[in-house]
């Protein structure tokens, strides 16, 4: 994975497979603490302890089309090699949270990548899922909530192709503002 946005796209696919209808993506950046925190939380079907202990194993996967499952192990590796931390919590029937911490000053820190493109693409192709994207940069924060967007759009669907570049622009300009 070349950047953090790719990890987000990947981990969120797990939440979608787990039948989540609420997915929250939280990013918190604190320069003075050398911290870049990325948390992905869902209300999907969750995992039991046995499965939870296996998901960081690259040779474990629920799919049948191939024998490896690299999404979680790659994120764990990329977080830990910056000196950061990685944790997954899950409760069957409640949901799963994937918590990762990066040390952005470390030379192995991944770039952020195309956050706005990733989030908006996820909202576009999963209109039935409620996405909350919370971006905190130092003291500033911005929240992109698909329920608010759906309300603003009215009868126009969130997955209408014409809306896609608009949402991207909305998120992009607000992220730029938050990072100032």
């Amino acid at each position: 994975m070349k950047d953090l946005s790719m990890h987000i796209m990947d981990i969120v696919q797990n939440s979608i497979s787990a039948a989540a209808n609420l997915i929250e993506i939280r990013i918190r950046i604190r320069k003075e603490l050398d911290l870049y925190q990325l948390d992905i939380l869902d209300n999907g079907k969750g995992m039991d302890e046995e499965m939870l202990s296996k998901v960081t194993d690259p040779f474990y996967t629920t799919r049948k089309t191939r024998k490896v499952g690299l999404g979680i192990p790659l994120l764990k590796m990329n977080a830990e090699r910056t000196g950061g931390k990685f944790r997954i919590d899950s409760t069957p029937g409640i949901g799963t949270s994937v918590l990762s911490e990066f040390r952005p000053e470390h030379p192995d820190m991944l770039p952020e990548g195309d956050l706005e493109g990733t989030i908006v693409l996820l909202c576009h192709s999963n209109p039935e899922i409620h996405f909350i994207f919370n971006y905190q940069f130092e003291e500033n924060s911005y929240c992109f909530d698909t329920e608010e967007i759906k309300e603003a759009l009215g009868e126009i669907g969130i997955s209408e192709p014409m809306v896609y570049p608009m949402l991207k622009e909305l998120l992009k300009s607000n992220l730029e503002e938050t990072r100032k």
Binding site: I149, A152, M166, E169, L170, N174
Partner: peptide, 12 residues
Amino acid sequence: TIKSLDDLRKIK
């Protein structure tokens, strides 16, 4: 010009 939810409403 799309910077807020209000801008989305205006463009609807």
